[in-house]
Amino acid sequence: MDQWNYTSQYGFILLGFSDHPQLEMILSGIVTIFYLITLVGNTAIILASLLDANLQTPMYFFLRNLSFLDLCFTTSIIPQMLVNLWGPDKTIGYIGCAIQLYVYMWLGSIECLLLAVMSYDRFTAICKPLHYSVIMNPHLCLKMIIVVWSISLANSVVLCTLTLNLPRCGNNVLDHFLCELPAMVKLACIDTTTVEMSVFALGIVIVITPLILILISYGYIAKTVLRMKSKAGQRKAMNTCGSHLTVVSIFYGTIIYMYLQPGNSASKDQGKFLTLFYTIITPSLNPLIYTLRNKDMKNALKKLMRLDQVFIKSKRNCK
């Protein structure tokens, strides 16, 4: 405790699951496995979609962005988390904590908006197929991505700056395994109603508004699919949208439960496990969800594996 008291003057103590040492050992192994799956899976999707000429479409452009986002998101959190899980050192410097908080909020907000953009892409492809290439042109796609990243950055700057400026009265012990906004707000020694209301208001804009747009898009998609006379066309449309809907359900289900519920309605450990699911398991599931239901992506990954095999053989021959 003396060491913790000393280091808390220069940063934060992340308690995590320190009251369950055996659980920490198990979690460190699970986190490592899922992190490796995330790295391999999302990198494979990015490379496969870049190298395959058949995948140079808006749908795969947005999918590459989602995979890149998941890589950045997990890498901003997991290395520090593993350090805290593996050893007795549970501290993180103030600057490191602030950076993690800003990046965590920024990238998390991007995913909310990006999933809405992807639903609009699917709406256009299915409901307006003849005008799809004109509407979803490369210039518009790039513009949408820039807007998504910019709005999310503004959201992160506002919320995180408000949170970091709250007086903590020397309280530097975070009952979490990362510098997350709700955990940081709880350290404040003043009434945080204003900040909590700001979080809720921006949460409506960043989380609920995109979700409403997604539901509207899929409402129109459902109408169009039901009107199709061809069963093959219906199956193709459902396969195209099924992966995105699965990701949306997992992502938004967790986010809404975590951030848009009354502050004391969930137990501390429950909140930590939900954060683990959102930050570790979901990014590792995304590549599996998009590849298992997508023939084009499967073929692209097979081509990538063949290229890897050719590269390995040529390297051996050179030796």
Rank of each mutant, 00 (worst) to 15 (best):
V185D: 13
K90L: 05
L159Q: 12
E111T: 11
P79G: 08
C112H: 15
N172M: 15
S119Y: 11
V207N: 02
I78D: 00
F123R: 12
A98E: 11
V185G: 11
G170S: 07
S109Q: 01
T91A: 08
P167A: 06
V199N: 02
C97V: 04
V158P: 10
L101C: 05
V117C: 09
A116H: 05
V147L: 08
N137L: 04
L63R: 00
E196Y: 01
T161C: 12
F123C: 11
L153G: 13
L187E: 12
C112P: 02
D89N: 08
R122V: 05
L69T: 03
P138M: 00
V207I: 04
D175W: 09
L174M: 04
L101Y: 10
L181G: 06
T75R: 00
E111C: 13
V173E: 07
E111Q: 15
G203Y: 00
V195Y: 08
G203E: 01
L101D: 03
I126E: 15
V103H: 01
M197S: 13
K143I: 06
R122E: 11
V185F: 04
T124M: 14
T192K: 07
A154S: 10
T163P: 05
N84Q: 07
F123N: 14
I190Y: 08
I151Q: 01
N155Y: 15
G108R: 00
I190L: 10
F200G: 02
I77M: 08
Y120R: 14
I110A: 04
V173D: 03
N171S: 10
F73T: 00
I151L: 13
I145V: 11
N84Y: 01
V207T: 00
V103P: 09
L181C: 01
P129L: 06
C169L: 06
W106F: 13
F123Y: 15
I190D: 06
N65T: 11
R64C: 02
F68P: 06
D121F: 11
Y94A: 13
G203N: 02
L130N: 15
G203R: 01
S119C: 12
C112S: 13
M81L: 12
N172P: 03
D175I: 08
Q80L: 06
N172L: 02
V207K: 00
G93Q: 04
C97I: 07
V207H: 04
